[in-house]
Design a protein around this nucleic acid. Structure first.
Lengths: 350, 350
DNA sequence: TTGAAAGCGCTACCAA
DNA sequence: TTGGTAGCGCTTTCAA
């Protein structure tokens, strides 16, 4: 059954997946030669006719090398694993993600996203480790514990890179510095003379890794303002779900809160809240200033036009090179780099 | 170097990745026994003390099985590959994607997204084939040619499933029926008495797989209306970039176009265009009705509130089961199923 | 210039 | 109940 029956030596439509041995047989050479030819091994010279025969045989059989077998033999792979959890994120992030994958592929890595939603950190790490990736790059969607990192390294990962704020030992931790976003937004509001500043904290699960640092950043801005001429700024966290009901409820008790400004986490929450405020008779920006983040096109369509924080994402290329470097020299000291910069785009809502 | 030096027989922090042989050695059993225990092989009975020793040894070493070795030995993997190209898509899609991954994992598949942006169809197929996935599920981000499918099948993929409109031979093609979206939107506009209907076609690359069928659907609706009492509806494609300039330009020549309604591809394009129309002095819905799609929350915040097409995405679960079935029985006839249904949500802009 | 063969980590068959 | 071992597909050293 598993031996060829000699009835039909070549069954192009047969169900067996062609191996390099099949190619060798068809080309009338050894498996070694096939390997040399197909990998352009420079250490060895193969005659041109042989090369052609091998290539034609491979082509004819539709031969595709078996990545698992190859990396098993090699003792390592060039797979970079990106845990993904599909949190709702903007086009910015999406673009960055794309770039990163593209650049990593240029550097000859196989990039694979591993959907890890709903997995506990060590379950996830174990699942990743089974694939023996040479590097894991977590953009922060998934929590990475110290044990998880340890496990990955023990399974041969030469670099574990985090972009979240979490500073995990053994990780190359690149600060994406979400906090900076809250900081510039709040500083801007304070400069404009606002003092009681609400900060929207989405209640949606999975957004905590973004919202927490943004809130912290806002607090930092308020504190540092306290030492200057513009003293006494306070920050009030405002839990909010992404639906009209929640926004209306919040707007309904707005006057009790006594806020004169709000940083709304991002443009979408900002748009939602701004509408609710306006419907509740609170004028923007006179009574309350509103600032979002992400600089979405849609924010410009509102009246008043939404002020926002524009985020300059790092080039995927930079990160890709950093990954490559970390892989090549696993013991390089974790160089922390700032991966995004933020600036306020003041429009009409603040 | 590669042999153990007998100096430190057990280096827990050593750089070598522990194998099942290491576990066996530490537990004082054979590799076979390790395999039996760790896989709960039911065909074989192992004494409880042995089991415990093995498990403890594995735990102590931080042993994680090597997926490549396993699937090489098994002759097949349970990897489902989802080509991803990160086109900007809504929360709906995102949710669906998440569900699908979750459900597939419940069925014991390893789900992996392979970022294939910028790859030509056969390059992509080759790259996927190297991983020897048992199934490939393309949600339509990447074009799948007949040769690509052929190659995948020859490399052992037991199911290739497409959700796009492309009907590729050898594929289990599930109609996501984007056309239906354009159809219901246009039918709604015609019923409301509109006759000259613009259909926005985004100029952004990569959206063609969505926009083309939507336009076709709109045309179908117009044609079928032509036979009834409400005859003479026409459809006019409107290329549009997702930026204010392009929208203003289009709005500027709106009156020349003589349109009394527009289906704007989705809610984001609809919001962009509606704002431009209003700024150009064209009243919505009186002079021109506007309908989007996706039923985004933000559309409800506009004035007038945006009419839209609500899309009921199929459960990821259904698709996951279909994948599983296709894998179990690769020769099952390609059952085409409707994977989404659409209905108009009429608000104020139409 | 080409071939034979070892061995990567794992599982499953067969023997003890 | 446990161990020995073949072999999955591939690359690479060593010989011829």
């Amino acid at each position: 059954m598993s031996h060829s029956t000699d009835q039909t030596p070549e069954r192009p439509t047969g169900h067996a997946v062609p191996t390099s041995a099949d190619v060798a047989r068809l080309a009338g050479v050894s498996r070694a030669t096939v390997s040399y030819v197909l990998n352009n091994t420079s250490a060895v010279r193969i005659s041109e006719p042989t090369r052609r025969r091998v290539r034609e045989a491979a082509e004819e059989l539709g031969y595709v090398p078996h990545a698992a077998a190859r990396s098993l033999r090699a003792g390592h792979s060039r797979m970079v694993l990106l845990p993904s959890a599909h949190i709702p994120v903007g086009p910015l992030y999406s673009q960055f993600f794309n770039d990163l994958q593209w650049e990593l592929r240029r550097l000859d890595y196989t990039v694979v996203q591993y959907g890890s939603v709903g997995l506990k950190p060590d379950e996830a790490a174990r699942a990743w480790a089974e694939l023996r990736p040479v590097a894991v790059v977590s953009l922060g969607e998934v929590e990475l514990t110290e044990q998880a990192v340890e496990l990955l390294k023990r399974s041969g990962a030469r670099a574990v890179i985090t972009l979240g704020t979490q500073q995990v030992p053994g990780t190359h931790s690149l600060a994406m510095d979400q906090g900076r976003i809250g900081e510039v937004a709040t500083a801007h509001l304070i400069e404009s003379g606002r003092r009681r500043i609400g900060v929207v904290v989405p209640e949606e699960p999975g957004l905590g890794m973004f919202s927490r640092p943004r809130l912290e950043g806002a607090r930092r801005a308020a504190e540092s303002a306290g030492t200057g001429a513009a003293a006494g700024a306070t920050v009030v966290p405002l839990p909010l779900r992404y639906d009209e009901e929640s926004a209306d409820e919040l707007a309904g008790r707005w006057r009790e809160l006594g806020l004169d400004a709000v940083f709304a986490y991002n443009d979408e929450y900002a748009m939602l809240l701004m509408r609710a405020l306006q419907d509740a008779g609170i004028s923007v920006p006179e009574e309350t200033a509103v600032v979002g983040a992400d600089d979405l096109l849609l924010g410009r369509l509102l009246r008043p036009r939404l002020s926002t924080v524009h985020i300059d994402m790092v080039l995927g290329r930079e990160l890709a090179e950093l990954v490559d470097q970390a892989v090549r020299d696993a013991d390089t000291p974790p160089r922390s780099r700032r991966l995004l910069d933020s600036r306020v785009v003041r429009r009409e809502s603040s």
